[in-house]
């Protein structure tokens, strides 16, 4: 695999590399997460769940993947 296949992403504040091309849905599944339980923000913009399969991860993307936790 050549280095051009690797996509560098800032994922929840950490620098990570993934083999591309990769959609957001594929990324979520690669991480072992359930798409229906998370929300994704890409470069400060919400990505609607219905479009996760259509959005390609791009080199340098900043992604936030969040879910609900206990809180008051």
């Amino acid at each position: 695999m050549s280095s051009s296949d690797l996509i560098s992403i800032q994922l929840n504040g950490e620098n990570r590399s993934f083999e591309g091309p990769l959609t957001l849905l594929e990324l979520i599944e690669t991480l072992g997460l359930k798409p229906n339980k998370v929300a994704v923000e890409r470069n400060m913009e919400i990505v609607p769940r219905s479009t996760l399969a259509d959005v390609q991860c791009a080199d340098g993307d900043a992604l936030e993947i969040v879910h609900f936790v206990g809180g008051g």
């Binding site: 994922l11 998370v38 809180g71």
Partner: peptide, 12 residues
């Protein structure tokens, strides 16, 4: 009430 936080990507 619930909070919104980053998922733990190392322990999904």
């Amino acid at each position: 009430t619930v909070a919104v936080r980053r998922v733990n990507v190392s322990d999904p």
